[in-house]
Nucleic acid binder design. Structure first.
Lengths: 190, 190
DNA sequence: TGTGAAAACTAATGTAATTAGTTATTATAA
DNA sequence: TTATAATAACTAATTACATTAGTTTTCACA
């Protein structure tokens, strides 16, 4: 057992990530990917099961990256400071890797445990950071949902170019996070 | 001037909306649409310029619907009550018309004035409802951005099935809106 | 009742995903 | 050093769409 060594998955995902960040998730095609890898399209099937599987793996790849950056941002901080750091890392990732971010969100419905695991790790990180606010059981879960909504909502509208006005985006985002934090501190969430 | 009367655009958008709500925006194809309209695919080109144009028109169609429901929900209310009504109408629309909602958001980049107009009307409505909080100039615009982020973030994560836990979604959403409102009232936004 | 504008059609082209079956390469076993 | 088995990569063929060109059909009105 030890046949010829060809492409490996990391290389493929790397290139696919480049395509997707350049041209958008919807313009990822096996043809373009193969061209950039200097092979013929059908050869890709030796490594991945098809376009849908590629998107799936790309989503997992993106989630790993996102998680890594969020952990790095949050480490050594707590409370509001940690929340702000986490938030900034999140939108930062979306800005630097718009296609990959999109892939993490628009992953096809599936019960792929690896994908679920990757999603879960990001959620878990948020749960941990919010723990310091001492929210009771259910309230904590609702609050995590709210926080995720804010992060994804802002990031995706920004990426879609949905904020038309020439008004500072970072300011909008910081204010949003602070407004949310103020709401939490006001005790509404208990 | 008065040749034979065939399909009209409303009928086409109606059927396209059905497809998209059933199978998702990515599964909208001219073939499927033509089949349901009982015509051959190329005949569609007598009414629309192609798949991309169809998506565009679908986005406008969806935005009109969304706006209508939001207006209806907000009328006769003001302040927090109006904000809650608006919010509920928004997620309600997304739940009842997932594909159409997706179309409104993932409209192809374009400078189609009709699309921009339709988007603008929704934003304007939110601006008006938030006016009662007397936020100063810039602060008001940042707050609208925040509110939109919350609405879209929650709606799209819910549609994507991203909230895994068996925890009441309406409760999460109401709490999120109330937390945001509490943040606004706390004066963070000034 | 005739007609012309536009709806709908058939046929053809181009692109992309996917499958089947073949060839080429190379890490190890002999 | 050489043989071979595992598998990467290839060519050829199929299928599904979107789109274009060119033809036929229909029907509201003059």
């Amino acid at each position: 057992m030890s046949p010829r060594m060809g492409l490996d998955l990391p290389t493929i995902l790397q290139k696919a990530g480049e395509i997707v960040d350049e041209k958008g998730l919807d313009h990822l095609s096996l043809g373009e990917l193969a061209r950039r890898l200097q092979i013929r399209t059908p050869s890709l099937y030796n490594h991945i099961e098809g376009l849908e599987a590629l998107r799936q793996k790309l989503a997992i790849h993106g989630l790993h990256n996102l998680h890594e950056r969020m952990v790095y941002a949050a480490v050594g901080r707590s409370g509001d400071e940690a929340v702000r750091a986490l938030s900034e890392a999140y939108v930062s990732f979306a800005r630097n890797h718009p296609g990959l971010y999109d892939a993490t969100f628009r992953a096809p419905e599936t019960d792929d445990p690896e994908l679920q695991q990757a999603q879960h790790k990001v959620v878990e990180l948020v749960v941990q950071v919010l723990q310091v606010y001492g929210l009771k059981d259910e309230a904590a879960l609702h609050t995590v949902r709210g926080f995720r909504s804010i992060l994804h909502g802002f990031a995706s509208i920004e990426l879609a170019g949905g904020f038309g006005l020439p008004l500072d985006l970072d300011k909008s985002f910081l204010l949003l996070i602070d407004t949310f934090l103020a709401g939490i501190h006001s005790g509404t969430s208990n």
